[in-house]
Design a protein around this nucleic acid. Structure first.
Length: 902
RNA sequence: GGGCUGGUAGCUCAAUUGGUCAGAGCGUCCGCCUUACACGCGGAAGGUUGUAGGUUCAAGUCCUAUCCGGCCCACCA
């Protein structure tokens, strides 16, 4: 005998091994069929997967399994991402914690080796999780953004963009994260409201006059000031334009200039211009040809300032300068102020605008085709609302800073001859005593040689060439992912067959960082957008709607949940809440419900098996059925399958899950199995069993993309009755629906019997009639059609509502004092005199009458309204008429009962 | 400052695109070991659909205004 409750542990482990071993997850090229392709958004190797990955990949798995079962060659390409800064940070942290070492203690080469070892370890954790979640990913074929083939793709892309002059090097004011010690692109910067202060500083006139007062949040940068700017139309200051003012705490004089960028109504209307430390000032500075003075180093320390401030961290210098200005009588006022601070998306520390030479990709030429592709519907977003957002970003795109001053990543494939580029190269000695190229300056004469491996110098033929010290933005390799995974730039059969992919499933938070760039690169290198559809999933939050984070301690680990409830339950709980683009507040009750559903499936199956002793051979779904509930369940089943298919087709996975859940639990278990119980004793047992088995099996197949383990496990034990040949469900066909077996008439008839049953049950509950006590029920039926159904199928009512005597008819008599109910014009009487609380019953009757009265009056109004009769469909009008009629009958019945009770 | 979202039962979400007592799951309450399942069965309570107007025979759904959230983008120092 099977155990009473489903235990996923053993089942899941053996199945994932069997699947993996059998190779069912491998995709095969079939030139005669159109492929369905998804490339996985490669998880960063920063640690174990979280619930967001759980959701994202489960959605992909669902699509892949669904397509496979529909006979399409469906490839799901697995892989992981090296994760640039994020991974370097994580590894550095671990290094500090475990060995009290920094990356500089190891040196560049050893540190990179260390991260490679980390990758092996962390990658394995991730791959194990792939398996535990039941994702149909072929473990023997995993890609990594840093493996050799992907490195070739990165090089090829760099080279092509360089040759097209899309990649260039330039000195710009970039976003610098002092903590990560690297440049970042604009989208890697986040804006956060932080409270600080606004200081008003007095810049005295060089002529000894009052000068001008400016407002700033960054007094420490006054030493880098190149001018004070006012709005040209600001009458307060017109007389000062062209004059010189003295920077506080110095003797340096700077001009007052006029520029449109200055807002008259902010602060004093005068703005200090610091081209090297502020993006706006940088623009103003270049318009007015101002000097770019840097006073903060890449370490965030003061430099190039009066001795007193040298070497201070910028944040301390800020306080000190304000303090000193106050003492010098040059601080006019200080007010509290909340401003938007730029922060690093990887470590959340403040961003310093920093003037330096970096590598950039020129974007407008790449963005335009992407804009067109989206506008022409070649790429579609789900939900659609993201289309506009994506377009807006692409239309306002800035050049992309792709160089990072970290060690982990694809090295920039550019080399310099030590001799020919000598002036542009800066060296330092690291802790291991090795000489390292630390800085390259094209302005000072470095000559680039683009090459994957160490080249000889084309000028002097010397072999002493050195590679650029920077690495590429991790998103550079990610942008190539949809074709690099298939071996681009090689023209592989896979690339030809699988590109472009069918759909990208990813989180909306990387729609610019990743999605937009893949579209641009796909169009640039492959001539075609990399996917037709983009399905955005939301963020899995905690129950209160907060983002899960280690620091908040509200992280839910998918592995814990699997351990406790099973992978199917985890998957199902995520899918039921996965509306496209919507965040999911995830609490444990969702998964309990999903676990219970697994148990329900298991027990329904177990029950059917318990009644199958002696039954052998193939059981087909009967072509015709006489019995109402048979017709009904087959109709419901076909509708459910149809609805599920349609829901998946429009990427509404939650609706698919909901449909199948309610069909299996609400229709199949609560009604059909309950009715079947009585029939097991009779002649048509085998007929009933064949319906049970086939409908169950079909539902298991329909559910398989959602909950692969339990469905597979149960299906295995029923397979011999179905004539299926595929070893696994993945190799069997997703159930088809047969419209000819959708039977609305049967559903309507069944609804009548269910409704009457429910009314009787409710009455029993109200009157506290114990289940063991059988009762008599009198039905007053006026419609001959209804009477026919009741006569023929009264056993449904008697068995499910525990009735031992059912009388029905048009002209029957009933005892005076009955409990009464009504359904669709049928009056239901239960003679239980002793149990009825007269007053309560009367109150209830009045309420029932009142409800009917509103219903009747609404419907009468509609039917008397000419516009309604004119505009509404005939079907609708008839429905309203029927409802009105039934309500009138119900009302009468209740009124009579009320009168009889006195 | 611009844009996108959302506000429906105590909680989390539905509602076939304008069609009539507004549904489900969880929670709560009542009763049940009824020939699988107490991870279960039966039943009940609970809603002026954020607010105020408007269009319509008909509004949760469309329009206008307004309040309250969430998110994204942006160079007010």
């Amino acid at each position: 005998m099977l155990p009473k409750a489903y235990d996923p542990k053993l089942v899941e482990e053996t199945l994932s091994k069997r699947w993996q071993k059998s190779g069912v997850f491998k995709a095969e090229i079939d030139a005669n069929k159109k492929p369905f392709t998804i490339v996985i958004p490669p998880p960063n190797i920063t640690g174990a997967l979280h619930m967001g990955h759980g959701l994202n990949n489960t959605l992909q798995d669902m699509l892949i399994r669904y397509r496979r079962m529909n006979g399409q060659p469906a490839a799901w390409v697995p892989g992981v991402d090296h994760g640039g800064i994020a991974t370097q940070n994580v590894v550095e942290k671990a290094l500090a914690k475990d060995k009290k070492l920094t990356r500089h203690d190891l040196g560049r080469e050893e540190f990179v080796n260390h991260v490679w070892r980390w990758y092996k370890e962390c990658g394995n954790t991730i791959f194990t999780q792939f398996e535990k979640m039941g994702w149909a990913l072929d473990q023997s074929d995993i890609r990594f953004t840093m493996d050799d083939k992907r490195a070739q793709a990165v090089y090829a892309a760099f080279k092509k963009l360089w040759e097209k002059k899309y990649i260039y090097r330039g000195k710009r004011l970039i976003n610098w994260c002092v903590r990560c010690s690297t440049a970042l692109s604009d989208i890697e910067v986040e804006h956060e409201q932080r409270s600080g202060a606004l200081w008003y500083l007095q810049y005295k006139g060089q002529d000894g006059g009052e000068g001008i007062t400016i407002a700033t949040t960054r007094p420490e940068t006054i030493f880098a000031d190149a001018a004070v700017a006012v709005n040209p139309r600001d009458e307060r200051y017109t007389n000062l334009i062209g004059a010189k003012v003295i920077i506080p705490l110095t003797n340096r004089a700077i001009p007052v200039i006029a520029d449109e960028a200055v807002q008259k109504d902010f602060g004093t209307g005068a703005l200090k211009i610091t081209p090297a430390h502020d993006p706006v000032d940088y623009e103003v500075g270049s318009r007015h040809n101002l000097e770019q003075i840097s006073v903060i180093t890449d370490k965030g320390k003061m430099t190039n300032v009066p001795q007193k401030y040298m070497g201070l961290p910028a944040s301390e210098a800020r306080k000190q300068v304000a303090q000193d200005a106050r003492e010098a009588g040059l601080l006019v006022k200080e007010e509290k102020y909340v401003n938007a601070v730029s922060t690093c998306y990887r470590c959340n520390s403040p961003i310093e605008p920093f003037l330096s030479e970096q590598w950039f990709v020129k974007m407008d030429g790449l963005a335009k085709p992407a804009v067109n592709a989206i506008n022409e519907g070649k790429v579609n977003f789900h939900p659609q609302s993201w289309k506009q957002q994506e377009l807006r970003w692409l239309e306002n795109i800035q050049d992309w800073c792709i160089s990072r001053q970290i060690w982990w990543g694809h090295r920039i494939p550019v080399w310099y001859c030590r001799k020919c580029s000598a002036k542009g190269l800066t060296f330092a000695t690291d802790k291991q005593g090795k000489e390292q190229l630390t800085k390259v300056s094209f302005e000072d004469g470095a000559q680039p040689i683009v090459s994957f491996a160490r080249p000889a110098c084309p000028h002097c033929a010397g072999a002493d060439t050195l590679q650029d010290p920077d690495v590429l933005d991790t998103w550079f390799s990610s942008a190539l992912w949809p074709f690099s995974v298939f071996g681009w730039p090689q023209e592989t059969p896979e690339l030809k067959y699988y590109y472009p992919t069918s759909i990208l499933v990813t989180g909306y938070e990387i729609i610019y960082l990743w999605v937009a760039r893949m579209i641009m690169m796909g169009l640039e290198f492959m001539g075609e957008a990399p996917f037709k559809d983009v399905l955005l999933n939301g963020i899995v939050r905690d129950k209160t709607g907060k983002k899960m984070s280690k620091s908040l301690g509200n992280v839910i680990d998918p592995l814990d949940l699997i351990q406790k409830y099973g992978a199917d339950a985890v998957r199902f709980s995520l899918i039921t809440q996965a509306a496209p683009g919507k965040d999911i507040p995830y609490g444990e009750d969702a998964i309990v419900g999903a676990r219970n559903f697994c148990n329900k499936i298991y027990n329904a199956s177990r029950f059917i098996q318990m009644n199958m002793e002696g039954i052998e051979g193939r059981l087909t779904l009967p072509e015709t059925a006489e019995e109402l509930c048979d017709k009904w369940i087959i109709s419901r089943y076909n509708k459910a399958v149809q609805a599920a298919r349609e829901a998946i087709a429009r990427y509404d996975m939650a609706a698919a899950a909901d449909t199948l859940y309610h069909f299996l639990w609400g229709d199949f278990c609560d009604w059909y199995i309950e009715l079947a119980k009585a029939r097991f004793a009779g002649k048509d047992k085998e007929h009933v069993i064949s319906i049970l088995v086939n409908v169950l099996y079909g539902t298991l197949k329909a559910l398989h993309p959602l909950m692969p383990f339990i469905t597979e496990e149960i299906a295995q034990s029923f397979k011999k009755f179905t004539g299926e040949t595929g070893e696994f469900l993945l190799q069997q066909a997703y159930p088809a629906f047969d419209v000819s077996r959708i039977d609305d008439e049967a559903e309507k008839q069944m609804q009548l019997l269910q409704g009457i049953t429910a009314q009787i049950r409710a009455k029993r509950a109200q009157l506290n009639v114990p289940p063991s006590m059988k009762i008599k029920v009198i039905l007053f039926v006026q419609e001959p059609e209804q009477q026919n159904i009741i006569t023929q199928y009264e056993s449904y009512i008697t068995s499910l509502a525990k009735v031992n005597e059912l009388v029905s008819g048009q002209t029957i008599s009933k005892p005076a004092k009955c409990a009464s109910a009504a359904f669709q014009g049928i009056a239901i009487y239960i003679p239980l005199e002793g149990l009825i609380d007269i007053e309560k019953e009367k109150a209830r009757l009045k309420k029932e009458i009142a409800v009917r009265e509103t219903g009747i009056s609404n419907r009468s109004k509609m039917l008397n309204n000419e516009s309604f009769i004119k505009n509404a469909t005939e079907e609708k009008i008839n429905l309203i008429r029927t409802e009105l009629h039934e309500m009138q009958l119900d009302k009468e019945a209740f009124q009579n009962s009320l009168e009889e009770l006195g």
